[in-house]
Simulated scan of single mutants.
Amino acid sequence: MKTRLVACVVAVGLLTQLTACGSEYLPGIKWPEPPVVTPGEKDTDPPSDAMVLFDGTSKSAFDNADNWKVEDGVLIAGRGAIVTRESFGDCQLHIEWSAATPVRGRGQGRSNSGVYFASQSEGNGYEVQILDSYENPTYFDGQAGALYKQQPPMVNAMRPPGEWNSYDIIWTAPRFHSDGSLKSPAYMTVIHNGVLVQNHTELAGKTAWDSVPKYTAHPDRLPIRLQDHGNPVRFRNIWVRDYKKLEGEQVEEPRFR
């Protein structure tokens, strides 16, 4: 019986090794243990490390909320945007919202609102559009799930008016050098009713209705704002959690064993 040695050439960065097939690759990185987070009973429930912004009872997580009402466990948009008292950087936001019934208006005038990240003032920040886009034509980069005036959603995943929609948004804040120049842009991933509509989409700057997108330096952590566009919109089950990529330490050269 002949024995055949099968060799594999494996490239690891600048390291090229000749090793027997089936050898285990060891990257030489010492990783911290991922922290334990207990998920909610349902996928839409807040996990154990989340900050609950609205649980159906209190508006206390928001400023400027006097004109917004809480009725039957639902937060109803009123005059003026509301803004979180806490500031957030890279984070995961869950929010549920419902367009009005009976249907009122058309186009951009139908249950219009928005979720703004890194918001320093009314209408300022990076917006995921909220709009009743169910059988309601409008410009594509302004419909539900759009990064306003920058990127339409990949699909229209709206439910009919009166039914609840959910957004799960992954926000990666932009970073700036000390001189105010852009170091890395902002990104957003948006899942609308369980459907991926934005996949780590790069933003060209702050979103605006009447100006070209651009970046101006700001802190990594800023409040989240819910827009008042003069239309009836309902909200419930709003929570947010910070996230941070685990950083490992290279303690030895990559090798095989």
Rank of each mutant, 00 (worst) to 15 (best):
G180P: 10
G180Y: 03
K183G: 05
K183F: 06
S184Y: 00
P185G: 03
Y187S: 00
T189M: 03
V190N: 06
V190M: 09
H192M: 13
V195D: 04
L196A: 08
Q198N: 14
Q198E: 13
N199P: 05
N199K: 15
T201E: 15
T201P: 01
L203F: 15
L203S: 12
G205K: 02
K206R: 15
T207N: 11
A208Q: 11
A208N: 15
W209D: 15
S211W: 04
P213G: 08
T216G: 03
T216Q: 11
H218C: 14
H218D: 12
D220N: 12
D220E: 15
R221A: 14
L222H: 04
I224M: 11
R225H: 00
R225C: 13
Q227P: 02
Q227L: 15
Q227T: 13
D228H: 11
H229Y: 10
N231P: 01
P232C: 05
V233W: 03
R236E: 07
R236P: 10
I238F: 02
I238K: 01
W239T: 10
W239C: 10
W239R: 01
V240D: 06
V240Y: 07
R241S: 12
R241P: 06
D242T: 14
K245W: 07
L246V: 06
E247S: 10
G248L: 10
G248A: 09
